[in-house]
Each structure stands twice: as structure tokens, then as C-alpha cells.
Simulated assay, not measured.
Amino acid sequence: MRVVCPHCLAVNNVPAKESYKKANCGKCKGSLLDSKPASLRATTFDEAVVNSDIPVIVDFWAPWCGPCKMMAPTFEKVAEKFPLKMFFAKVNTETEQLLGARFGIRSIPTLIIFKGGKEVHRVSGALDERSLMSLASQFSS
């Protein structure tokens, strides 16, 4: 399966398994099991979303948004529980206004889940850990 490196955003081919002890990026050698959310920009967004065989959950946020700031640690914590099952990413709508417009982001935070490069689910508003875990579990590989 193709997965995107959370460190350098390179596309890697990884054998599909139930669990992994080790999986490193072929380009930067960083661990693919490090599921810290990646920051996407307009120049990297399509490549990361389209080239991922695992679902991608994108948090559209802004630095001035209180609920976004409150949900950020939860988003990172939940991301740790889905290595090579779901790719977690963030888009700062303040610096990436074209992406916000492209996806019709009207309120933040907004989470969009992509599968096969296509949007399959969207939810607006901050989620608590239990709700975010449930959402990610519903769509993860």
C-alpha cells in the first residue's frame, strides 16, 4: 500500500499488515509509525491526499481560533493511535486560503476525511477525544 511520510511527505510503498514493528521512509528515513499530524500546503495537499492508500483526515484550522487551539492536542493524541491506518494532516486556512476556499470551509475547525483522494465525510466544530477516536475508527483501514 502507498503511504505518505509524515516528515517529508514522500510516497512510500509498504506491505499491508495488521501491525508493524518498524517502517521507515525510503527518502528521509524517518519512521512511518510516527503519526504526528503533517502540515499540508497548497503545493503538497493533492499529492499527499491522492497518493495515500490509507484514509486521510485533514483538520482545517486557524491560529486565532479558540476551538482549534483546544482541539489540537486531541488531534495529535488520536493520531498516535492510528499509525499506518490513517494519515492525519492539518491545513492552516490563514496561510492556505486557496485550500479553504477550494473545500468550502465556512467554519473552523472542520475535519474532512478523504479515501482514494475523494472526500467521504466532513464534520465542523471541535471534537473531544472520544468523538474523534470514534470518527477515525469508523474510517481507518
Rank of each mutant, 00 (worst) to 15 (best):
M1N: 11
V4L: 02
P6L: 05
V11H: 01
N12F: 03
V14L: 03
P15I: 01
E18V: 06
C25Q: 00
G26P: 01
G26Q: 09
K29T: 00
S31G: 07
L32Y: 03
P37E: 01
F45L: 07
A48E: 14
V50M: 13
V50K: 15
N51T: 02
N51H: 15
S52P: 08
S52V: 08
I54A: 10
V56R: 07
I57V: 09
F60G: 02
C65N: 03
C68I: 07
M71A: 12
V78Q: 15
A79D: 10
A79W: 14
K81E: 15
F82W: 11
F82I: 10
P83G: 07
M86D: 00
M86P: 06
V91L: 02
E94M: 07
Q97S: 14
Q97F: 09
L98H: 10
R102K: 07
R102F: 01
F103N: 08
F103M: 04
G104T: 03
R106N: 04
S107E: 14
I108S: 08
I112W: 15
I113L: 13
G117Q: 14
G117H: 10
K118L: 13
K118C: 15
E119W: 12
V120R: 13
V120A: 04
V120T: 15
R122Q: 11
S124Y: 13
S124Q: 13
D128Q: 05
E129D: 04
S131A: 11
M133I: 03
L135T: 04
S140N: 07
